[in-house]
């Protein structure tokens, strides 16, 4: 498997009244072709900001302080705005949490899917006479709509977003993402706004896309269970840092970092005997992070060493943890 996307030491800062806050703090990871990677974290962990930065969409006043984002042989952070626009949608596509705010309410759904084809001239439009262009594009849009499970695409092509249910809107968003056969789909909490039965439908669709087209998918979610079901590999983020990463099996069955362990203990499970929850104490305070391990103030195993920043260390094959419990002490 080839690496298709590589993020190196990414650092994104936001100015706040309390000084610079590092929303993404030295994030490094790779994505292989056809891989399913899960990025799991709570609010403020920097998971969504990482995705947006990869897409070149860091919201102002955020600043990329350092790092590289390699797509194949190209560092996207050095690409021109034009080049980036070419890249977005064509090679890397993104799906957002709230389809209602991402789809434009005043345009027909079908036209919005076609727009993406048009922008990227995906069908080699320069060689097609204008008269045929629209028909060709519409044909492909109808095929896409059918593929993502929108029933009666001919009729739905003419519909407006508000005439779609939440699940159907998200399918339309996925159709837009798929329109130019991207190699990578970045999905930012794609099912968080949806009901659980609709979530299952959408996840099945993403599963099909990954299997049938071989599209690599990065799933950003706060739902450890969802990531477990879907992903080959999981990154756990806390306060802008990756605190643990590894194959799903290893991270879930043998979590190493106290935060990952804490998350698993805080989640109620549906098992015949109910077990008491073990909440992680406290709440994250991004404005006042300690100089060392950001999790230390809430960690029941914190020690003196934790006042210095720990490094990401390999504890098993492909399984890395950022914690002094597993070595790295000077």
């Amino acid at each position: 498997m080839r690496t298709i996307l590589r993020v190196e030491d990414l650092l994104v800062e936001f100015p706040t009244p309390h000084g610079q806050v590092r929303a993404v703090n030295g994030v490094t990871f790779q994505l292989a072709t056809g891989e399913r990677l899960g990025i799991v974290g709570e609010s403020g962990s920097g998971k969504s900001m990482t995705l947006l930065t990869i897409m070149g969409l860091t919201p102002p006043p955020g600043r990329i302080r350092r790092g590289e984002v390699w797509f194949k042989e190209r560092n996207l952070l050095e690409a021109s705005p034009q080049e980036l626009r070419q890249m977005r949608g064509r090679h890397i596509a993104m799906i957002f949490q709230d389809p209602m705010t991402t789809l434009n309410p005043v345009f027909r759904v079908g036209e919005q899917i076609r727009e993406s084809l048009r922008v990227h001239q995906y069908l080699g439009e320069e060689r097609v006479p204008a008269s045929r262009r629209k028909a060709l594009e519409k044909q492909r849009v109808l095929r896409l709509m059918a593929e993502v499970g929108i029933p009666a695409p001919e009729e739905r092509y003419e519909a407006y977003p508000h005439e779609f249910s939440g699940g159907m809107q998200q399918r339309a968003m996925i159709a837009i993402a798929l329109s130019c056969d991207p190699e990578v789909i970045l999905a930012d909490e794609p099912t968080t706004a949806l009901d659980v039965t609709v979530q299952a439908q959408i996840m099945r669709l993403l599963d099909q896309i990954n299997r049938q087209r071989g599209t690599a998918i990065v799933l950003v979610t706060h739902d450890l269970h969802l990531a477990t079901e879907f992903c080959d590999r999981i990154l756990v983020m806390y306060a802008g840092q990756i605190v643990e990463q590894g194959p799903t099996e290893a991270v879930i069955r043998h979590p190493k970092h106290p935060y990952t362990q804490g998350l698993l203990g805080a989640l109620p499970e549906i098992r015949p005997e109910k077990t008491p929850l073990m909440p992680i104490p406290g709440e994250i305070d991004l404005a006042h992070l300690p100089p060392g391990c950001p999790f230390a103030p809430r960690c029941h195993r914190a020690m003196e060493a934790c006042s210095t920043p720990p490094a990401l260390l390999e504890v098993e094959e492909n399984h890395q943890v950022r914690c002094f419990l597993y070595g790295g002490l000077a």
């Binding site: 909440p279 104490p281 406290g282 709440e283 305070d285 404005a287 006042h288 103030p297 809430r298």
Partner: peptide, 8 residues
Amino acid sequence: MTNTPSLP
């Protein structure tokens, strides 16, 4: 159980 968070 709660560590005292900062309060402006």
